[in-house]
Nucleic acid binder design. Structure first.
Length: 425
RNA sequence: GCCCCGAUAGUGUAGUGGCCUAUCAUACGAGUCUGUCGAGCUCGUGACACGGGUUCAAAUCCCGUUCGGGGCGCCA
């Protein structure tokens, strides 16, 4: 019965069976060592030539990354981790070809392009695996949080008829005799669920954006963690967001000590209150830094870098001008809205808002943005027969992972990134 | 979509008109070595993205193509 390599230390002085990839084979004249790796770690298998002549000669030429299964005695030894497995039986399950298109344990760093082209090999590296173990903890922690708080998990359609926010480009899809699009956000559907009376919903699902951007923080398919709540306002859901992020980070600190160590990241637990800075205050901060920016203009990358770049923490930017936010964001007054962003330094992690719930306001907003309310009828109708006040937000899972691990390229926190030029693997 | 930059063995690099028959490391192959753990040592195989041009001479200069990187816009 195979055990994980990480469990070998619990079976000292007994026979174990382990399986995995031979990441390094060191051959001396009368003894050889095989470093075997699986999802849980690595251990050294040792084989003396004496008494194992045939097996020894076979293994001398076995390529790295060959998949094998080893049976042997787990013993304390002078190995660096303090123990090893004395091989007494070995099965080659699948030989690897040579040379590898990408060295799994080479000390040479490959370009991200080469790594993504050979992602299955890249992902074998413990530090890359660690990123995705941690990402799994984050999404599970958030899911658990929502479930515990009585949220209903939903699965909204990813093939849609209309744009959701008007602004971003959509991927067209041929839908039989009609044209449809890949969903850029579950926004409209999670709001409809408020009208449906589900009260609190969340969804973890892909979102598609056809923007031709070429930056380290954009991809064309990402994982959106969405939530929406009824009978609350923007401040309430900011409270929830802060708690969700703190819960997720604490969960990683609790369950991924080994992965954090491999990645050289210190304890991610957050012990400060997220500041809430109004958009107008932010503009003043930019002005004080010598940037010419008028109240009402969008915050450019330069502004966010100049003001936010020095802030190594989470903070909200609240009360955005209505003109800069989508039609579904609740107005605060003539000029400002109940929309907010959560930033970490210069990077936007979340956008959210108290939403419009009055059908009249909604239709006026749609018109004001140059959109035709008719084409949003399926959505507007949900507001006409009893829509509660509601608010919500969406986090980019990959961006949140970047922040937690201090990684600067979103492709690193995406298993198989879809960017401007990459559709495979 | 706009601006800038780049492309040399499997991987990562050196190279700035002739000294390039192209550097180094790693990988790969052969050999050697009684416990390694980035094993060591010896020998070997392996590359100038593609197409055109300038020149006595091009990895090197020019043009185009393809692919990639960075920045901006936009966003999570």
């Amino acid at each position: 019965m195979r055990i994980l390599i990480g469990k070998v230390k619990d079976h000292m002085d007994s026979e174990v069976e382990i399986s995995g990839w031979a990441q390094n084979i060191r051959v001396m004249s009368s003894v050889l060592f095989i470093e075997l790796r699986d999802v849980s770690g690595t251990v050294q298998g040792v084989l003396l030539r004496k008494g194992n002549e045939e097996l020894f000669n076979d293994l001398k030429t076995i390529p790295r990354e060959t998949v094998m299964s080893i049976k042997g005695l787990a013993v304390k030894s002078q190995a660096k981790i303090g123990y090893e497995v004395q091989i007494n039986h070995l099965d080659i399950l699948n030989k690897a070809e040579t040379p590898l298109p990408l060295g799994v344990v080479d000390r040479i760093d490959s370009d991200i392009e080469t790594r993504l082209e050979n992602r299955f090999l890249d992902l074998r590296r413990p530090e890359i695996l660690s990123i995705f173990k941690i990402q799994s903890t984050i999404s599970n922690a958030i899911r658990n949080y929502f479930v515990q708080k009585g949220f209903i998990e939903i699965h909204s359609p990813k093939i849609v008829a209309a744009a959701t926010e008007g602004g971003t480009e959509l991927f067209p899809v041929k839908y039989f005799e009609r044209n449809a699009y890949l969903s850029q956000s579950p926004q409209l559907y999670k709001e409809i669920m408020m009208s449906a009376g589900f009260d609190k919903v969340f969804e973890v699902a892909p979102a598609f954006r056809a923007e031709e951007h070429n930056t380290p923080r954009h991809i064309n398919e990402f994982t959106s963690l969405d939530m929406e709540m009824s009978f609350v306002d923007d401040n309430d859901v900011m409270d929830v967001l802060e708690e969700v992020i703190k819960t997720a980070f604490r969960s990683v600190a609790d369950s991924n000590q080994r992965e954090l160590e491999i990645l050289g990241v210190s304890n991610p637990t957050i012990d400060y209150k997220f500041r809430r800075i109004t958009y107008s205050e932010y503009v003043k901060m930019a002005n004080e830094k010598g940037i010419d920016l008028k109240d009402g203009e969008d915050l450019s990358t330069l502004v966010l870098k100049t003001v936010g770049g020095g802030m190594n923490e989470f903070y909200f930017i609240t009360r955005w001008p209505r003109a800069l936010k989508p039609f579904y964001v609740q107005p605060h007054d003539e000029q400002y809205s109940r929309g907010f962003d959560l930033q970490f330094g210069e990077l936007e992690i979340t956008s959210g808002a108290q939403r419009v719930h009055s059908p009249e306001v909604l239709v006026n907003n749609l018109k004001a943005k140059g959109l035709n309310p008719e084409s949003f009828a399926f959505y507007v109708n949900a507001f006409r027969y009893g829509m509660p006040p509601h608010a919500g937000w969406a986090i980019g899972l990959e961006r949140l992972t970047m922040v937690l691990l201090n990684i600067s390229n979103i492709r690193e926190t995406t298993l198989f990134p879809r960017d401007r030029t990459r559709v495979t693997p």
